[in-house]
Amino acid sequence: MQLTKLQNQFVKIRTNKAFELFVIGVIIFSALLVGAKTYEMSPTLHYVTNLLDWFISAFFLTEITIRFLAEERKKDFFKSMWNLFDTVIVLVSLIPADDTDMAVIARLVRVFRVLRMVSIIPELRILLVSLVKALPQLGYVMLLMFIIFYIYAAVGSTLFENINPELWGDITISLLTLFRVMTFEDWTDVMYETMTVYSWSWIYYLTFIFLSAFAFLNMVIGIVVNVMEQEHAAALKEKMEDEGEPTLKDIQAQIAALQVQLSQLAEKPSQDTTYVKVNAE
């Protein structure tokens, strides 16, 4: 009984909005502390930042322990990808960041503690999960985009190599030049340079920009937005189920049940009328 009460206290702490906001504040402060360490500072200030860093690590360890103890079934805690991510980040950040062989790794892990913001804020989780789930579909778009890049790079290297070898010397340099054109980084300078020799070369650039910057990038955005809408719908459904509110399927099932009842009621008077006629005879 005492253990159950203690677990309930941990659950209240974990679900407390003030506690979640405080955790987010500590994560933001941790990010600022990592940035502050990139500047030169006095030995005293360096000592203070190290103390604050250890305080943050201890707080994160306490917070992940509370979340673990609040779980009713401890095995379910490690079934969540976000819980595993947080646990690894917290445990590795406990590595001493002094002048040791692991100092560089420890500092890098402390930088990645900022990513814990993703696991804390549901909206950020939806964004990241949507991006990951969109990768298979994005892969085919990227493959097709690379084919277009490669064809245009080969054509550009063949036609424009003598005009400017620094931009069109070989196919790899041509790929970088085309990336510059796609991102509109002074692409008109590149075009006007080739137009002095080939006046029709503007067709080459405009068709490439239309395919890469307009067509393919809009396809990428469309795929990500579509997956994001699906994740938002799934998250809303899960939230409604957790709160006990009826979902769309539940409402549809209730409507279907009502329609069956109405049809049965509509058939019942006709059956009663037939029964009365038989008795009358």
Rank of each mutant, 00 (worst) to 15 (best):
L144D: 03
I147W: 14
I147R: 08
Y150L: 15
I151T: 03
A154N: 15
A154W: 12
V155P: 08
V155R: 08
G156V: 02
G156K: 01
L159Q: 03
E161C: 11
N162T: 11
I163P: 05
N164K: 06
E166R: 08
L167C: 02
G169P: 00
D170E: 06
D170I: 06
I171H: 14
T172Q: 10
S174K: 04
L175Y: 07
L175S: 09
L176V: 00
T177D: 07
T177M: 05
L178D: 09
L178Y: 07
F179S: 05
V181F: 05
M182F: 15
M182G: 10
E185S: 12
E185F: 13
T188N: 06
T188S: 12
Y192R: 10
E193C: 05
E193F: 06
T194W: 01
M195S: 06
T196W: 03
V197L: 07
V197G: 03
Y198V: 03
S199C: 00
W202V: 05
Y205T: 02
L206Y: 07
L206R: 06
T207M: 14
F208N: 01
I209M: 00
I209A: 03
I209L: 09
F210L: 08
F214Q: 11
A215V: 14
F216L: 06
L217R: 13
N218I: 01
M219G: 00
M219F: 06
G222S: 13
G222A: 10
G222L: 06
G222C: 01
I223E: 06
V225C: 00
V225T: 01
M228H: 13
E231H: 03
E231M: 13
A233T: 01
A234M: 09
A235K: 03
A235S: 11
L236C: 03
K237Q: 07
K239Q: 08
K239P: 02
M240L: 05
E241R: 10
E241Y: 01
D242Q: 14
E243N: 13
E243M: 09
G244E: 01
G244R: 01
G244H: 04
G244A: 04
G244P: 02
G244W: 04
E245D: 10
E245S: 07
L248A: 13
K249Y: 02
K249D: 10
I251V: 15
I255Y: 04
I255Q: 14
A256M: 04
A257Y: 01
A257E: 13
L258Q: 13
Q259K: 15
Q259D: 14
Q259L: 12
Q259Y: 11
V260P: 01
Q261F: 02
Q261S: 13
S263M: 12
S263Y: 12
L265N: 07
A266H: 14
A266D: 09
E267K: 15
E267T: 11
K268I: 07
S270P: 00
S270L: 11
Q271A: 15
T273K: 15
T274I: 12
Y275V: 09
V276D: 10
K277W: 08
K277P: 00
N279G: 08
N279V: 08
